[in-house]
């Protein structure tokens, strides 16, 4: 989000849009970190951390992509494949902790990366 305006972020090509299946995620290694990249039904792309703070496993790209009405807005979401916590894909905010607390005292919300599609190349903004 705000990273977009930060001069220090570098757009890094990750894959082609065609490598991503619609409404599913894929894991990518970006700058040594595991990032979960999601292709939405409209062709837009969003990126959050692959690490699931609740199960402490690197799995979020394998969750079900959907949407949820939050204050009247249809928000794109992913549900953890492990124990079904739901996250807002745009902000990384945990919308439903499913009655659990994150592992090892981690924050429940996810880190996000700015993502865009140029031509058919998917790019992630990596802080320089």
């Amino acid at each position: 989000m705000t990273i977009l305006d930060e001069p220090t972020a570098v757009w890094t090509a990750v894959c082609r849009l065609g490598d991503l299946a619609p409404e599913r995620g894929a894991a990518a290694l970006v700058g040594g970190e595991q990032v979960a990249i999601f292709r939405l039904v409209d062709g837009g792309v969003l990126a959050v951390q692959q690490h699931d703070p609740f199960s402490d496993a690197y799995v979020l790209s394998r969750g079900i992509v959907g949407s949820r009405a939050v204050e009247g807005v249809e928000v794109p979401t992913v549900a953890s494949p492990m124990h079904k916590q739901v996250f807002d894909l745009r902000t990384g905010r945990c919308l439903d902790p499913a009655g659990k607390a994150p592992a090892r005292g981690l924050p429940p919300d996810l880190r996000t990366w700015a993502a865009r599609v140029r031509g058919d190349v998917v790019e992630i903004a990596v802080p320089a």
């Binding site: 409404e23 939405l40 039904v41 969750g63 079900i64 992509v65 959907g66 949407s67 949820r68 009405a69 249809e74 794109p76 979401t77 549900a79 079904k84 739901v86």
Partner: peptide
């Protein structure tokens, strides 16, 4: 799924969730 949500869903532009999709 797209047809199902458009015809029978509460909001035609919604994209479902981990309950209704499976």
């Amino acid at each position: 799924f797209t047809e199902v949500v458009q015809r029978f869903g509460t909001r035609p532009d919604a994209r479902g969730c981990d309950i209704c999709k499976p």
